[in-house]
Nucleic acid binder design. Structure first.
Length: 644
RNA sequence: GCCGGUUUAGCUCAGCUGGUAGAGCAACUGAUUUGUAAUCAGUAGGUCGCGGGUUCGAAUCCUGCAACCGGCACCA
């Protein structure tokens, strides 16, 4: 006999081989009816699975959050069945659950288009209505291979072949349709319900490898209840309203045009925002002991050969040939330039660490399909720095960088940060010993960060070609993750360039170089901020902070005075004296995301007050001109200046 | 780079099976002097992404290219 323990702590004896369903039935038929799966010792399993050892069991109803994965997984199968019913000859491949939904990849000579989706979805609803039972069978590898080969399912056959021999395969059957699958699944296809929607089609390489054939992928989402689906679709609309490309246009920050794919035309206001970020970072860095420099935009090919960029990344570099046949490259990174500055003039061990910073504009010829607004561009500004130090200083310096990064993210309201270590990639330069040392150093740092309570992780094989790195990912206001900051330990480039310092023993020593960026790309960070704040920039970052709006012409003189006083305090002010209703002005400036409106009419002019309306609120308050401006000026002070 | 889609006025979009373009908002002009998210009336505005082709005739059909959008791959 085996002991099965229930969530309430009660325990009962059963014969080995009893199924979850049997147990549920033994408790009550209604429980058996509403249960869609079970969790055995916390692991989600099919209800029909048998139990042959002591275990904790939980019955999972359709409404249980854990059932959502099953609903989505079954919905992927449902999609596949519908597609094969409607489009015979289409081959199935894989259909996993992903964040917010699922997809299924098909192979078909003619890829699916968005126009196909309504018909497929309709068919899916028909199949749901049939409510066929989902049953599980265990097949041998050979049996499965024979079956899918005979059916012409070449991709499934390949999948089966990649499964280690000896393992039995699970087949899930729903009505006339079946698929090879790991499971678990719901008891019947009708349990998927109707709160699902096909979202989009896309091409995707078989097994994620661009050397493989391209499959036709259909994305969908599913929820337990219609209201959850509606809420999700609403969230998508919200995200769309935050899109920095849209807000950039609406707020008159920047634009793109055809002649400069992946490059930004910054308008006055956008550039003011950009410059606020640069000034802020410049102050923070200076306080942390960095020395700001500037290095050439265009450098001889030979330098990139020395660094290794030429060999590794030439096809992604912008190249230019001059009349005398010399080949130059627009810099894709700042590090070689900074090494040149380090090398210029003899350095002693007493000088270390040397921290060289630059707001360096780099050009990278990104694949056309990768471009995405300001998030992925071909020319961007890095808040780049290189710390030249000795091996013993790595830990301390990396921790200082860490502290600075966290301070900076906090100033923008990013408190949820994850740090991941990326280790040696296939394409790399340098010896195994150097890599081992560098990775060991960062591992130690990572452990220290974990000990301090930071969320940490590892991305194997994701390092830079010259060294491993720590990558900082932050989470924005609507829960999306953005990888921004990076700390990279490099035992390679300084040596390749022959950089050295004189050690305490009077011998030449090769320094270690730590590459680090905090915003990463200023352009991208600006885009992230726009979306994070949904355009409602905090006062200290807003390019236009105040608009003084008059109610009638009678207040014009006073409005000029208000604006002049505000400017004296360094606030960015516009005047709206137009002959329009105040409702019109409020609407217009609210849509333009102006953080503060100072409304003045006859009353305010007489009393020397202002009526204050802040973006995002319908409320108005009144204050004397001096008090109102003092409060706004205080709020407009950058956080690092406030600290000082 | 690969797959699919899109490209018409400053913005959002309409324009069916080919008969040389239309709306709303914005802009401009005039009237209105207004109390916290759209005052009224009028006017003007378009190489229909770019190139080639079919046709008596192309925004519409075919074709090449580009940019953008959604994914995939890539991201030093």
């Amino acid at each position: 006999m085996i002991a099965v323990t229930f969530p309430d702590g009660a325990s009962r004896q059963f014969e080995p081989g009893v199924s979850g369903l049997d147990i549920a039935k033994s408790i009550s038929p209604s429980l058996a009816k509403r249960t869609v799966a079970m969790a055995l010792d916390g692991e989600l399993r099919d209800l029909v699975d048998t139990i042959d050892r002591d275990a904790k069991i939980e019955f999972v109803s359709r409404e249980d959050p854990r059932a959502l994965e099953l609903i989505r997984h079954d919905c992927a199968h449902l999609l596949a069945e519908a597609v094969q019913e409607l489009y015979p000859g289409t081959q199935v491949t894989i259909g996993p659950v992903i964040e917010n939904g699922f997809y299924y990849d098909f192979y078909r000579s003619e890829p699916f288009t968005p126009d196909d989706l309504p018909a497929i979805e309709k068919k899916m609803r028909e199949i749901v209505a049939r409510d066929a039972a989902i049953t599980k069978e265990v097949w041998s590898r050979d049996q499965a291979k024979t079956y899918f080969t005979a059916k012409g399912e070449a991709f499934k056959r390949e999948l089966i072949e990649s499964i280690p021999g000896g393992e039995d395969l699970k087949i899930y059957r729903q009505g006339h349709w079946l698929d090879l699958c790991r499971g678990p699944h719901l008891p019947s296809i009708g349990k998927v319900g109707t709160a699902f929607k096909l979202m989009k089609v896309a091409g995707a390489y078989w097994r994620g490898d661009h050397n493989n054939p391209m499959l036709s992928r259909i994305y969908g989402t599913a929820f337990a209840k219609q209201e959850d689906l509606d809420a999700y679709l609403h969230r998508l609309e919200e995200a769309e309203r935050r899109d920095h490309r849209r807000l950039g246009r609406e707020m008159d920050l920047f634009h793109f045009q055809e002649e400069g794919p992946g490059t930004i035309f910054w308008h006055e206001k956008g550039w003011a925002l950009f410059q606020s970020l640069v000034s802020y970072m410049r102050r923070r860095q200076k306080a942390a002991g960095y020395r700001e420099v500037n290095t050439p935009q265009v450098l001889d090919r030979a330098l990139w050969e020395t660094s290794g960029h030429w060999q590794t990344y030439r096809e992604n570099m912008f190249l230019t040939k001059t009349e005398d046949e010399r080949i130059f490259a627009l810099k894709p990174m700042n590090c070689p330039g900074h090494v040149q500055i380090f090398k210029n003039g003899l350095k002693s061990y007493r000088d270390l660490p040397v921290k060289i910073a630059e707001f360096g504009i780099v050009h990278r010829y990104e694949p056309s399909g990768a471009l995405h607004g300001m998030m992925r561009v071909r020319a961007f500004t890095q808040d780049d720095a290189h710390i030249f130090c000795n091996e013993d200083q790595i830990m301390e310096e990396a921790l200082k960088v860490n502290d600075l990064i966290l301070t900076i993210y906090k100033d923008f309201g990013f408190d949820d940060v994850v740090v991941k270590l990326s280790t040696r990639p296939e394409k790399h330069v340098g010896s195994d010993e150097a890599w081992a040392k560098a990775e060991a150093a960062l591992h130690k740092v990572l452990e220290e960060l974990a000990a301090r309570g930071l969320k940490t992780g590892v991305n194997p094989g994701e390092g830079a070609f010259y060294g491993p790195k720590l990558e900082y990912t932050l989470r924005d206001a609507i829960g999306r993750e953005w990888q921004c900051g990076t700390t990279q330990v490099d035992f390679n480039l300084p040596g390749r360039f022959g950089a050295f310092y004189i050690g305490a023993d009077s011998e030449k020593k090769t320094p270690v170089m730590i590459h680090r960026a905090m915003f990463g790309s200023l352009e991208r960070f600006t885009g992230i901020l726009i979306e994070h704040y949904a355009g409602h920039l905090p006062l200290w970052l807003s390019p236009l902070q105040i608009v003084v709006c008059t109610i009638t012409q009678d207040a014009d003189d006073y409005a000029y005075e208000v604006a002049a006083e505000a400017r004296k305090l360094g606030l960015a002010v516009d005047l709206d004296l137009r002959n329009e209703k105040i409702t019109y002005k409020v609407r217009e400036h609210s849509l333009a995301k102006v953080p503060a409106l100072l409304v003045v009419g006859k009353k305010e002019a007489a009393e020397r007050t202002v009526s204050i309306r802040r973006l995002g609120s319908q409320a108005q308050s009144s204050a004397t001109l001096a008090d109102a401006l003092a409060a706004l000026a205080a709020e407009a002070t950058p956080p690092d200046v406030k600290e000082a």
